[in-house]
Design a protein around this nucleic acid. Structure first.
Length: 572
RNA sequence: UCCGGGAUCGUUCAAUGGUAGGACACCAGCUUUUGGAGCUGGUCAUGGGGGUUCGAAUCCUCCUCCCGGAACCA
């Protein structure tokens, strides 16, 4: 695997100029040089607790936490919970669990924007007193009309010039719950002719009689994102406030509030969010997939959610390495999902014990091997890791091999088993196919074979046998359920659709194939949920949480690179 | 149309006025008791036009294309 991880985080990026810096690191270095902040780097990851985290969030999490680590700084976790109607405690728990699983630690710095509601309210009052905010009675629709269009300036609200006293009184009564939802807002008084819509007297407080997951019914007015985020950053003494590109237009407002409030002023930096081929990446679309039954929940192993990837069997290391590898830039990009797959292959290749599993069993009877005899053959657990040791695998007269490893009429370049041909049984003898037995409908149901008893652990001198196949003992093997997961979408860009269709029309109907009765070697008795194995020549698999001692269930994490598939494709 | 961003191999990230480089993918070969892993080599890119300069991916200029923006969402 040639992936260059470049993941050396032991040296500060600031002191290793030979390693190219990403644009965020360059900005940080400028700040360090100019002394803009008289403190160390302090970042934060600010999720809204209204959904599950996905691989795109992992990029942001990794960026914020590893930047802090590289520069010897800190990264906070802050829940951006300013909208009581959408946020739930359940999401807070899952988000924390996912970040921890990824391997990042916010220590005791778990914050909530809702913790700052009193301070935010006081700042709003200050703006009113400074004649920089006013209570507006315009309805939502009227507000939209007054805002203007990209080419025309907006109009001043008729309530724009209320006195400080009236504004103070009205805002207090908004807070006291005297007015129904939507009847009034507090707006910042900026510039209705500003080319940036966010500067055209943006709403900073709205009336919302909702139950908040943390503050309960204490408030019926809630600050907007723009009046919360920068100030929260400021309170926490954040230095670089890293967010995604769509917030670029909000930066002037972010700066305006910090300036007018005369508070610590972090630098907002925007980067491009992650997109992956063969998947979608939005909470709304995930919700559709879950609600309409295309997947079995948020942690379905096909979902690009962190919980889905975890259940699938991805390792946190591989996701972190992936995030480091893809880097960070300001232009939108779509990362090939094979990059992600290669990272998990690379990690699992190093750590996953090898075992043999036969997914589509075909019985083999070895005619020259005695009935009842059992040999314990020695197999290495991981050729990449000698310390993983060896195990024994029972060899008997009747075996199962995979149907795919036999071809009655072999195509060229096929060097597995075929009538009259030989193949190496992994860790065992060379096997020769003598006869093919079929049922009434012509299906191949059994192979009669012989072994060359002088080939255990050594090569024959008179011929060369190239193919190696895996196998299990028919008598000693275990039954297992195997869930073969594939990409959820059958096209690279699921959102590119014909007029009148949506991403659902690109769903891969074969994203899950369940094999109920696969045969696995006895070493897999009593596996535990979460364990990961390589099924030799097949792929990497994890033990699903549905697994029981009687009924092991394995999820395919990712297949092995299959160069036979490529050859078969190219020679056709 | 206005504002804000962006454009380098198929993909992603470099090169910060001085030989356009790496990785993935692809192709060829070596090796192998996983058609796995590993190793070697190869194909492939600066959106376009002008300009500055001995020299431009990089600076200037015009153009083209792409993304985001008019929630009392974040």
């Amino acid at each position: 695997m040639g992936v260059n991880l470049n993941a050396d985080t032991s040296e500060s990026a600031a002191t290793t100029p030979e390693k190219s810096l990403n644009f965020v690191e360059e900005i940080i270095n400028d700040h360090l040089e100019s002394g803009r902040f008289d403190q160390t780097v302090h970042t934060r990851f600010p999720p809204e607790p209204n959904g599950y985290l996905h691989i795109g969030h992992a990029k942001s999490i990794a960026l914020n936490f590893s930047l802090a680590e590289k520069y010897g700084g800190l990264c906070n976790l802050r829940f951006d919970d300013t909208n009581p109607s959408k946020e739930e405690e359940e999401y807070v728990h899952s988000i924390k669990e996912d970040i921890k699983w990824l391997g990042f630690d916010w220590e005791d710095r778990e914050y909530y924007a809702s913790d700052y509601f009193d301070q935010l309210h006081d700042w709003a009052v200050k703006l009113i007193k400074d004649r920089l905010a006013y209570v507006c009675d315009l309805t939502l629709e009227e507000g939209r009309e007054y805002r203007g269009t990209p080419t025309e300036a907006g109009k001043h609200s008729p309530y724009r010039d209320r006195s400080v006293e009236e504004n103070l009184d009205l805002f207090a009564r908004m807070k006291a719950g005297e007015f129904p939802d939507g009847t009034r807002t507090l707006k910042a008084k900026i510039d209705m002719a500003h080319p940036n819509f966010h500067m055209r007297d943006p709403v900073i407080y709205r009336i919302l009689h909702g139950h908040h997951h943390r503050t309960g019914d204490d408030w019926c007015i809630y600050p907007m994102y723009d009046f919360t985020h920068g100030q929260s950053d400021s309170i926490e003494k954040i230095t670089q406030s890293i967010c995604t590109l769509e917030f670029e237009n909000h930066r002037p407002l972010y700066d305006w509030f910090c300036d007018k409030l005369e508070i610590h002023h972090p630098q907002q930096i925007e980067f491009a969010r992650l997109n992956l081929t063969y998947t979608v990446m939005s909470k709304r679309k995930f919700l559709t997939l879950v609600n309409e039954g295309y997947v079995n929940g948020w942690d379905d192993p096909r979902m690009p959610t962190i919980s889905g990837l975890r259940r699938r069997g991805y390792t946190p290391e591989s996701i972190r390495n992936f995030c480091e590898y893809i880097g960070v830039a300001k232009h939108n990009s779509v990362v090939d999902v094979t990059i992600l797959e290669n990272h998990v292959r690379e990690h699992l290749n190093a750590i996953a014990p090898r075992v043999m599993a036969v997914l589509n069993p075909l019985k083999v009877v070895i005619e020259n091997y005695p009935e009842g005899k059992v040999e314990e053959l020695q197999a290495v657990n991981n050729p990449e890791d000698e310390s993983a040791g060896i195990r024994s695998v029972p060899f008997t007269r009747e075996l199962y091999i995979d149907h795919n490893d036999f071809m009655e009429e072999p195509v060229k370049k096929y060097f597995r088993l075929a009538p009259g041909k030989e193949v190496r049984l992994r860790y065992g003898y060379i096997l020769k196919c003598e006869d093919v037995i079929k049922n009434d409908t012509g299906e191949i149901i059994e192979l009669r074979c012989t072994i060359d008893p002088d080939t255990l652990g050594k090569q024959p001198t008179d011929r060369r046998v190239k193919g190696v196949i895996h196998w299990v003992s028919a008598e000693k093997s275990l039954d297992a359920e195997i869930r073969l997961y594939d990409r959820l979408f059958s096209v690279e860009h699921p959102d590119k659709v014909e007029e009148g269709q949506d991403f659902r029309s690109n769903i891969n109907p074969d994203s899950l194939e369940i094999i109920k009765h696969a045969k696995v070697e006895p070493a897999l008795r009593a596996v535990k949920s979460g364990e990961r194995y390589q099924f030799e020549r097949v792929g990497y698999f994890s033990v699903d949480q549905d697994s029981t001692d009687d009924h092991p269930v394995f999820n395919r994490i990712v297949s092995l690179r299959d160069s036979w598939a490529r050859i078969a494709r190219n020679t056709r």
